[in-house]
């Protein structure tokens, strides 16, 4: 199944079918998430209205981690099986992952100022998220740093694989070190510590962002595949 859809043409056929559904799902989930997040959920008894920042901050942070794990998976597939589509996916996904990480960092800062009294602290969770952002930038820079695209893709895939060690560090940083950041309150062994009225917008926004990512990454992959075809035609024209 995995190898079957590693064929660009076959994958694009599937992507063309999925694209409109993903766009509809993303729009519906995000609109519902915004309604429940901004209007139909109560303020927190301690944090007041600032808790609404959670509905964009936490899903953006989840996406930042999810996209990086996907990037590392694609890197592995590219290095092991030389699937060209794995590289196309990784190149399309990395800037989106960097965007989600930047959004998580900025929204966290906007949440931290009123609740902690500071925009930023160099603690484990915040610093490891900043490292994730730098890993994304490093990945993008490395992939484009070589005249030989294949070499750039291989070097970037290796960085993605090595950097994935940062993901569990981010996840468990709040348990391993003292930090201002609150510990896990949703993905816990003994169940979420958040009221269902707040979990609903959180999961709606998380689902919406996931569908959005898939829809946009497919658009970006289609654009990259077209760009490759254009480049190949131009090279063929120059070469006679």
């Amino acid at each position: 199944m995995f190898h079957r859809f590693a064929n660009p043409a076959r994958f694009m056929a599937l992507a063309n079918i999925l694209s409109p559904w993903l766009t509809v799902a993303a729009t519906g989930l995000l609109v519902a998430g915004l309604y429940f997040g901004l209007l139909a959920s109560p303020p927190d008894y301690q944090q007041g209205e600032t808790v609404r920042i959670m509905y964009v901050h936490v899903p953006a942070a989840w996406m930042a981690l999810f996209v990086y794990v996907a990037l590392a998976g694609a890197g592995g597939a590219f290095l092991i099986w030389r699937h060209p589509l794995a590289d196309v996916f990784a190149q399309a996904a990395a800037p989106l992952g960097a965007g989600f990480t930047a959004a998580a960092l900025i929204t966290g800062s906007l949440w931290g100022k009123p609740m902690w009294g500071t925009w930023w602290v160099w603690d484990a969770r915040l610093t490891s998220m900043l490292i994730l952002f730098l890993l994304y930038l490093g990945y993008i820079a490395l992939a484009n740093a070589f005249d030989n695209r294949e070499r750039g893709a291989r070097a970037a895939a290796l960085l993605a694989l090595v950097g994935v060690i940062n993901v569990p560090i981010i996840k468990f940083s709040v348990d391993w070190w003292n930090t201002l950041h609150q510990p896990a309150s949703v993905l816990k062994i003994d169940g979420p510590a958040i009221d269902p009225s707040m979990l609903l917008p959180l999961f709606l926004m998380a689902g919406g962002m996931k569908a959005y990512f898939l829809a946009v990454v497919i658009l970006r992959m289609r654009a990259r595949l077209l760009a490759r075809r254009v480049r190949a035609l131009r090279l063929a024209a120059v070469g006679g």
Binding site: E49, G99, A103, T107, Y212, A215
Partner: peptide, 25 residues
Amino acid sequence: GGYSAFVWPAYGVVALVMVGFWLAA
């Protein structure tokens, strides 16, 4: 509740990133 200066920019940043990537794609 007096936190507009923090809540709206947070939503604005996320909207900017998501709409920006979608339009660029």
